[in-house]
Design a protein around this nucleic acid. Structure first.
Lengths: 203, 203, 203, 203
DNA sequence: TATGAATGAGAGTTCATTCAT
DNA sequence: TATGAATGAACTCTCATTCAT
């Protein structure tokens, strides 16, 4: 039984892969239509514009992964566990992107490249949502005495930055071979990372 | 006495502000020339191309700030101090950008948006340089027993991410008022941040 | 029944007339598109570039007329007949150009005005092909004792020049009325021309 | 004693060499001024426009060589001798162009590339003058029974074409090595050429 | 007289979007 | 519904010419 996909989804999939591999601006409508195996005009039967494709992609592929992230706050677990679950959600969401994780960073950072106000607002809202959850996890931890008291916003930002780059490590435009002799650099160790966040660098 | 600026610098300043505020691709040559108060053709008297403007901006505003960063490695100080100095350099460099620090993040992350190979290579080299220095600081700290042993690359990436977002905190597209009632969120505390990196979240 | 022309041919025809009447560099893409009654962008649906239009024009209108010219050499006829046939081919080819034969002379002489290497090479090849055939016809005639022995290359060049200007006579930028009272100047007499080439000016 | 040249002449010389070597359209005003060792603006102190430089160049370097060509007609010599002198004048004029004779062909053929009506008219007038002289030489020869009777205009055109290409032989865009094995192709033999014109190809 | 910084019209080309079929 | 031919606004860059010094 062959999988039947609607044209709508064919377009979305094609656009997704292209955006990830070539970037938004380097992806042309004709590329999307050809990758989807349909005509160029047909794209506009299903989407109002290139921006609109991106918006739906964002909603379905990215935003949706965070639908329930605020549930974290009301859970009856330690702040440390909440932090771990936050990282888990990030990992789960980003690991879906099999091709090139630059896509996500792009979203976070380059949102202003788009003209579509709805899209920009969506992106900003998601960043704010993530930040807010992390902020409240950390705030709660501080209040409960579980975490050391520091400026909460900046602590949250730092942790968010660490998570982002830890997760996106392999998209840094660097050739590790030039820096590190051994090749065993990509063994992901989530517990190790959490240990770093919780206990810091110090031995 | 009015400040006299060369056309070259007028163009650079105008381009800089526009790149920062509207992004590279949304900034047109005519925008730059108008912002600089000169004719369109004049831009090409001082720069070969739009790419060339960006390249010079990168070299003068960004790259130059890291000219001596590798000196850090040979200093006769503790790894902790080296980490502190690394952060200092980042702070000093980024604090020059009075407008919007998105510029820097863009550079690090979106280098592939440019076609100019020289520029791309320059950006990649700088990222690699920064990562390399941080990597060796951390590696040394681990070897000396000053830092806990973990995967060095991922530790370095995490720390780099934390630094980046800590520093660029105010460019996160979030309205903190929505999240945090009190307005006292932007008091930079570098020692506090270093403390977070060294000792972790845990109380 | 009205003649239906493809857009491709409309563009080609429009470009042809414009190139002939205004020259290549004075003809702008917008001129071509307007002459063809289409939009500027449409030109690029059918041709990669302005150069590409010219190249196709050259191939179809000029080069193709000489596809079989080398067959002449292996024919079992006198050298005089071969020369006659050479002239016939030139006449047939050039008489296709209903507008202004300057086009052809331009091609032969101004090939270096173009940047497109493929085009330049094509033009050079055609000139060489024509010269080569004429050269060998004359060489053979000399060897067989049919033609007087002289420097073959320079003889060939002279004959080629005579043919070219004989054929292109009416594109010389001169008003014959100023020079010759009678108007009966354009009666083409190919046998007379051949007689001139074979027997010379002398009575 | 060093030769002192006026700026006017420096510009003319520089432009001349550049036009010959790179062609009119590929030669930029800045190229001329640099080659002349003067400032760009200075060019416009001496010439109204790029066209005007070309016009003066044409007048002084080309047209002047034909100032006395009409004297030929009233000379008391045979038509054959007049033809020989005509060729001599052409040879003398063209041999001045040490660089690239394409310059001359350009003039004859590409006059329409220029906008300057005065220049175009000058070029046309020169072509007409040369043609007229040759026409009358041939006409006279025919009338005197020295030359065979043929259509005078076409005969004149043919002879002009032969002369032009004979003289400009080495600017044909062909690699003779591909066509002619022996390398001895460039021995100019004016008497041989005259013999060809007078007696034709036939043995 | 001599300059070269400044100019801007105009070039070829791109591509998201439209619309007749 | 599906199409792709057609579009033109908008882009970067060129260069003959101008003009304040």
């Amino acid at each position: 039984m062959t999988e039947i996909k609607s044209k709508h989804d064919l377009i979305l999939d094609a656009a997704y892969n292209l955006f990830i591999n070539k970037g938004y601006w380097d992806t042309k409508i004709i590329d999307i239509s050809e990758a989807a195996g349909i005509g160029k005009g047909t794209v506009y039967e299903y989407f109002e514009s290139k921006d609109a494709i991106f918006l739906e992609l964002f909603r379905t592929k990215v935003e949706s992964g965070y639908d329930n992230i605020t549930d974290l706050l009301s859970k009856n677990i330690s702040s440390e566990m909440k932090l771990k679950e936050f990282i888990d959600i990030e990992l789960k969401n980003t690991s879906k992107y099999t091709f090139n994780k630059q896509f996500l960073l792009d979203l976070m950072v380059k949102s202003d490249a788009f003209k579509n106000l709805e899209l920009i607002e969506s992106i900003h809202k998601l960043v704010a949502k993530k930040f807010s959850v992390l902020f409240h996890v950390i705030e709660e931890g501080m209040n409960k005495g579980e975490f050391a008291k520091r400026n909460t916003s900046l602590t949250a930002a730092s942790i968010l930055g660490a998570i982002n780059l830890y997760i996106s490590f392999d998209l840094l435009p660097i050739d590790l071979e030039d820096i590190i002799p051994s090749g065993k650099t990509k063994s992901w160790r989530e517990d190790e990372f959490l240990d770093l966040l919780l206990n810091g660098l110090k031995a």
